[in-house]
Design a protein around this nucleic acid. Structure first.
Lengths: 320, 320
DNA sequence: CGAATAAATGATAGCGTTATCATTTACGGG
DNA sequence: CCCGTAAATGATAACGCTATCATTTATTCG
């Protein structure tokens, strides 16, 4: 116990948490003793006493998905700068474990919560209300978040892609989409624009989430079996789009000559396929960073923007 | 307080932690009250009292790297089954933050530690010794881990790739390698085999970590400037290898006709480049899973294998 | 049916910090 | 040089659980 540096426990506490409240001499002396003894304060006890645990919990469907891992990376980095750490929870597809995970996580009393998506069970919502901590929902947009929000409109993504493809002269479309709520919203946005323009030749092929390359190949195969050869395909992820691209080429279709392809997210590989994949770029690190800033702002009592729309950008590359 | 269910606090504690010690009637009754009131136990207090926090901390250089994110995913999943959660720390390249991160993490008193790599500063080692908790180091192999180890031999990877390429008749080599300790060991293994065979025509191009596609393209450009046109290139990651592949094709070199390429890790895209990338496959989920099992075994007092070699597999595909 | 044993429950005392005052020491001005 | 104020330090009491041991209640068996 570093208190055997000749000071009271509370002074040691201050050396760590509010050194400006400690006289320079005492400060140096205590720090020397800490250094010498290798004392590491116990944040568990500190957290119990102060009711501040200095960590944030983050729930994502899967961390092994680049879409989420990059946001978590930037969240972690930004929070680290302010002395916070991140407890990670993966809820699975489609968020099946969220409820039990949330209970487990809330029992650790995080100072903030990072939640993927805006759809939560009633039970979860009740628990969140009781927890009474800053919460930021991400990757989606709604006028009524639980607390704060950092995301973008999936409906507008779908609309923008439809406008873009129609502008390129396409009239027959296919959609290959994973079984995921946000992907479904993008599809609806896509369809709504086509509907307005009376372009009703659209076939949808659903695939299970999480999507992968193979599902993309199979997806195109199924789409073609449906008859009514589409001239443009909108995929719910770049991964699917990559599979579609390879399958199209394997079938002797020229891309984009015979078939245009648009993905989603602009993952690393998207710019390096051949031809490079047209897609919708999302600034993934921004999601984590802005979310961290929202949480820290709320924790530290600063005024914060409740809703942050980080937007998106349709990237025209080689497959359209 | 759920104790107003007419029982003592300790009985509530038992309902959560050792329900088999509670009479069926009491159990049901208390559970009903818990359900009704939405009571969530406080693990911070529980952790302080029991000295078991039921979480494991994981330190990786960067979670936004598929190599690590998949191991963390399987670690998280396996630990969840046993009621543990994962606190994530990213130490940066090359692990520059490890020391301060470790201090911050140890002050939370994790029940176990997942550390990437086997190289830690003296100060870190001392702290780890004092912490006295189960530790599993991963992604590398050494006869003397701090505690437990799940990994494979990078030297043997380098040797295997050299044997493989020499067996295919190559005599002039290039190595493009990120500034990373493990990549360097692979390179040394690679060189050692070539040295034995008196094949000394090897040029090395170092690139900074973390590696990316662009560095791969630039790497090949620099390698070619060095004169002595190599026939085969060993890259320290699939990402670099992908860049090398595209750069080679852009320069009119046929792959593998003019230039053979071998990557490392077998990332998702590796099987889908054109031609598909030859590489070294690592069972990344196994690392997380086996690490979780080692930690849980130690925590629960079971005998465990101290050193687990998960091996690797040279995947011959289209670029060799 | 009573003694011995097992099962269920509880009382008490921490776990190692920090919040909240209270007290002591240093400092500045008339 | 004394008093008022600010700065530095400390005493005490939680924070909300669980370890430990004690006590009560149920069960078994000769």
């Amino acid at each position: 116990m570093a208190k055997l540096a000749g000071v009271s426990p509370i002074t040691v506490s201050r050396v760590f948490n509010r050194p400006e409240k400690v006289a320079t001499g005492t400060l140096e002396h205590v720090r020397r003793v800490i250094e010498r003894t290798g004392y590491v304060p116990n944040l568990v006890a500190g957290g119990l006493a102060s009711r501040r645990t200095r960590f944030v919990a983050a729930i994502v469907p899967a961390i092994s998905n680049q879409i989420f891992s990059e946001s978590i990376q930037s969240l972690t980095d930004r929070l680290w700068e302010s002395g916070y750490q991140v407890l990670l929870g993966t809820s699975g597809y489609p968020m099946s474990r969220e409820e039990s995970l949330l209970a487990a996580i809330l029992s650790r009393r995080p100072d903030g919560l990072f939640l993927t998506g805006i759809s939560h069970s009633l039970k979860s919502r009740r628990r969140l209300a009781v927890a009474n901590i800053p919460i930021v929902e991400v990757w989606d947009l709604t006028p009524s978040p639980i607390d704060m929000l950092v995301g973008f409109s999936h409906e507008k993504v779908g609309q923008a892609v439809a406008e873009f493809l129609v502008g390129r002269g396409h009239r027959r479309f296919g959609v290959i989409t994973a079984d995921d709520a946000r992907a479904e919203v993008r599809r609806m946005g896509f369809l709504s624009v086509l509907g307005e323009k009376r372009l009703d030749d659209v076939q949808t092929v659903p695939v299970p989430a999480p999507s992968n390359f193979r599902l993309g190949r199979e997806g195109l195969a199924r789409l073609l079996e449906l008859g009514s050869l589409p001239r443009a395909v909108f995929c719910s992820s770049d991964t699917l789009a990559h599979g579609v691209l390879i399958e199209a080429q394997a079938r002797g279709l020229s891309v984009p000559g015979d078939l245009a392809i648009v993905g989603f997210a602009d993952l690393d590989f998207a710019a390096h396929t051949s031809p490079p994949l047209s897609t919708v770029r999302i600034d993934r690190p921004a999601i984590g960073r802005r979310a961290a800033e929202s949480l820290l702002g709320r924790i530290e009592g600063r005024p914060v923007e409740r809703i942050v729309d980080i937007g998106f950008h349709v990237m025209e590359r080689g497959t359209t």
